[in-house]
Design a protein around this nucleic acid. Structure first.
Lengths: 205, 205
DNA sequence: CAGCCGCCCTGACAGATGTCATGGCACCGA
DNA sequence: TCGGTGCCATGACATCTGTCAGGGCGGCTG
């Protein structure tokens, strides 16, 4: 054993939740929160400065999201392991997080008592993944949408019209409609709005 | 002073957040979490059993939402004060929470250190309201949508077609279209989907 | 009570949306 | 090299959507 205390970094945009998690984890003898940040962009600088053993990252954050931050941490600070702690158990998030090099993935529905254990396991080099979510991820699979389709569907999220989307992406209206139609078909939806919802639910956007 | 210790109930659907908040609040000498629940429906029974001084309720919960739970607690257990602790600073939420009899309203962006103070203030009978949110609430104002319009717009949230909505609500398609059109106009939107987004953002649904 | 106002309901019509058939282009294996 | 495959792009056409004008009903006020 190198150091008896596991040093942690916490990243979550909600200050209250962040502070509460810090309080929870600091209760444990062998855990110590050494840094807290509120946006994805601050993660890497803080990691480089404090060199924590484990970084707990939320996925939804202002600036860079937790997945991108994970990849960056893995590349620039390989000594720090990453545990994703997120609100939404979107299947796609899990897959992308693992691909980005995350060591663990925990949703905020899990009992508070298990978090410390998850941290310890990740620190020991084990993978921690919510089992329910793992099966969902297999079921949902990778995104069936092509790059263009995702782009167009993402542009349709705010309820824009075809005309607006086509201008924003420099495409013909017919093309936009076609991509949307394809996305609707692949998501098993009937409407653009429905397609957006299921795609978001699967973490495909 | 009656009792030196303020007894608390925590209601939040995310177990991890709930447990973390409990840890945070239990650090304070004069605060004690005596009950935790994970859904709106469990709030009233737990309040009646434990008779906490202050109940901290989330708005987004399975079953009954935090606003409805607030009204119920105020009616059936007037000795318990209610502090809403929520993720989303939707202007409409604040207004509705206060109308339901909540004593305080805190968003999860606020620093963790302030939560304990908010609890103490609420316990002393003071109102605690996020100032930023209060002004937003005044700007956004009450929902301009009529009951029928809200109902139809709510039914359109999942991306249903007019035909589906009309069947679900036993209305003519023309009527549904008309209500949607009115909602679109009142929200300043151009599309049904856009109207849904802004209405949700203001807490009108 | 008459008039007015707001809400609800409905059908008709122009414009936006989703589907389909078609073609160009790059990449890959035979 | 050539056929096959997948992605992107586009226009035409049927369908759906949003707007508008209109009528019925209940409550409020002068």
């Amino acid at each position: 054993m190198s150091d008896p205390v596991i040093r942690l970094l916490l990243a979550d945009d909600q200050a209250l939740v962040r502070g509460a998690l810090a309080a929870l984890l600091n209760l444990e003898r062998d855990l110590e929160v050494v840094a807290e940040v509120g946006s994805g962009d601050e993660v890497l600088p803080a990691v480089l400065e404090h060199r924590p053993d484990v970084a707990l990252l939320d996925v939804e954050m202002p600036g860079m999201d937790g997945i991108a931050a994970t990849a960056l941490v893995r590349a620039k600070a390989p000594g720090t392991r990453v545990l994703i702690v997120t609100t939404f158990g979107r299947p796609g998030f899990l897959r992308r997080a693992l691909q980005a090099g995350a060591h663990g993935f925990v949703v905020k529905d899990t009992p508070a008592a298990e978090l410390a254990d998850a941290v310890r396991k990740v620190h020991r080099g084990l993978r921690v993944v919510d089992p329910q979510l793992a099966t969902d991820s297999l079921v949902a699979g990778e995104s069936p949408l092509t790059p263009r389709e995702t782009e167009v569907l993402r542009a349709a999220r705010d309820g824009s019209t075809v005309a607006a989307i086509s201008k924003r992406l420099f495409l013909s209206e017919g093309t936009v409609r076609n991509h949307l139609s394809a996305a609707i078909g692949k998501t098993g939806a009937t409407t653009r709005a429905e397609a957006v919802l299921t795609a978001e639910g699967n973490g495909w956007l």
